[in-house]
Design a binder for these strands. Structure first.
Lengths: 242, 242
DNA sequence: ACGAATTTGTCCGTATGTATT
DNA sequence: CAATACATACGGACAAATTCG
């Protein structure tokens, strides 16, 4: 009877009706990403609601990257990217980070499982050109490491190039979202710097070497070693002094 | 026209700014999921913006499940679940489905890579009790199949139980999101029915049998076969008549 | 059981900034 | 540069939902 006010009931998500109607409108009219949506005034009339309700619905859809609002011009159909996933995971990780680093380790484990499985599949798909691109990226990493700097963008590009031959657009987006969360949170914590860039470079080189030899098992092992390195970096810090 | 020079120019994107400020407020005050947020009136005053701006920001955060709004009571810190991912992926898949089923196949491939890797890891972690639970679920599936019905909930529970010993909460949420997208879209297309439930049951039984024998390779093979079955189901339909 | 207080939901009107033409 | 169309923001008012005395 007297329910604790501090505990919200987990009721089924009612959601905004207007929100769903706008989504349905996009689907019904076969609008593609980039297409222009009706203006707020038109949506007011078509859906029979006020401007405020339309705006709140559009704001919610914008947060999901389902629509894209351009100030002074109009509203477009969005790309429905994984930006909301990255935003939500970042927030959740930061909230939980006050207690422990579990959320971060969970993300890392998912990345590891994904990439170990993926590297096996691309091992037989990669073209010579792609292998050359990967080797070039490793050389660039080496130069950056010799200069004493970090190379987050090169790392990102490496993994993106690695899985291009799959032809699966969801894969780089998903990995990119995880990568973003990890780096954003790491930046807040202060342990964004790679303590041993040269080791990281050789991990990447090992992966390419195994792939060049079409050594599926070796590529998976190299990828696993790569993640062991990342785990050691974050694990060492989480047990260190605050 | 006559803009006062000493007055600081108003921030460009107040909307997303308020959004970030609310998130920062949650982090600064160490609010946990379920905690009550300041009321809209209080946020207006604290952030120095109008109520509409506050509401639009809260609506956007609600779409990301970062806050949870209850009419007539208040606003809570949300769970930051993967509901936005499921919503976004569902929308993207539906939009693209007018052309092809590529988005759906991409999701399936990610699920497959994930589950093949995960089943290897749980093979050495599963307790006898969890194995018994899995066997019980397979028996229930068999009963449902004999009765001629489908068993989407049993399938979902099977995969959830399978990875419980990992202790990774992100894994079931991620797989659940993918599963939701797949089933929601499948429902729209009309090919939700499993044409051969008995085959699906035996795929699951094969997985449990291999796991009971602690046969890592066999478990992965069984999982791969399981997904071959799902691919065959959807692939056959996508090449069939409209 | 009922009403008051609180809080969110919706609407209207108006003024301003911004991009396109 | 001027005009236009559009999104952005503010303030006020009332309705609906929830809680609690």
């Amino acid at each position: 009877m007297c329910r604790m006010p501090q505990e919200p009931v987990r009721e089924r998500r009612v959601g905004s009706q207007v929100q769903r109607e706008v989504m349905q409108l996009i689907l019904d009219r076969r609008l593609r990403p980039g297409a222009l949506l009706p203006t707020e005034a038109e949506l007011m009339e078509e859906l029979g609601v006020s401007r405020n309700s339309v705006r709140e619905a559009l704001k919610a859809l914008q947060a999901l990257d389902i629509v894209e609002i351009r100030h002074g011009y109009g509203t477009y159909v969005g790309q429905a990217s994984l930006t909301p996933l990255a935003d939500g995971l970042t927030f959740r990780t930061l909230v939980q980070l006050a207690d422990d680093t579990r959320a971060l380790e969970e993300i890392l484990q998912v990345r590891e499982v994904l990439e170990e499985g993926l590297v096996r599949r691309v091992a037989v798909l990669l073209t010579d050109e792609e292998l050359s691109q990967l080797e070039a990226l490793v050389r660039k990493m080496e130069e950056a490491a010799d200069a004493g700097g970090a190379f987050p963008e090169l790392d990102r590009e490496f993994h993106e190039t690695l899985y291009r031959s799959l032809g699966n657009e969801l894969v780089p987006q998903l990995l990119g979202a995880f990568w973003n969360v990890f780096n954003r949170v790491a930046g807040v914590r202060g342990w964004a710097r790679d303590p041993a860039p040269d080791v990281t470079v050789s991990r990447h080189r090992d992966i390419v070497t195994a792939l060049r030899a079409r050594d599926v098992e070796g590529a998976q092992r190299a990828m696993a070693d790569h993640f062991r390195g990342i785990e050691a970096r974050s694990g060492q810090e989480s047990r260190g002094v605050g």
